[in-house]
Amino acid sequence: MEDSVTATGRIEIDFERCKACELCVPACPTECIGMGTSINRQGYASAVFERPDDCTGCAICAETCPDACILVWR
């Protein structure tokens, strides 16, 4: 995943631990996260960091995730 021009932050979603609860998707103020299609070992289609360019590193997604699957950098 390349560093984008406009982004001021980056997140990492733990693909195996995500339970596809979708809470992070509407929580992201700039809609960077979507639900993926590939299935993890638990059988969930993990969330995916789809639009890294818009990420501000605000960490709201990480605060929201009930399973602490998301790490955030700036």
Binding site: Q42, A59, A62, P66, D67, V72, W73
Partner: peptide
């Protein structure tokens, strides 16, 4: 982007929880 802004709380054991997807117990 090397400055970690949000990491796992130290007191939260680094394991998958048994809680149902979206359950607020995790939060």
């Amino acid at each position: 982007f090397s400055k970690a802004v949000y990491t796992r709380p130290r007191s939260l054991v680094d394991v998958k929880s048994h809680f149902c997807p979206g359950c607020h117990h995790g939060t």
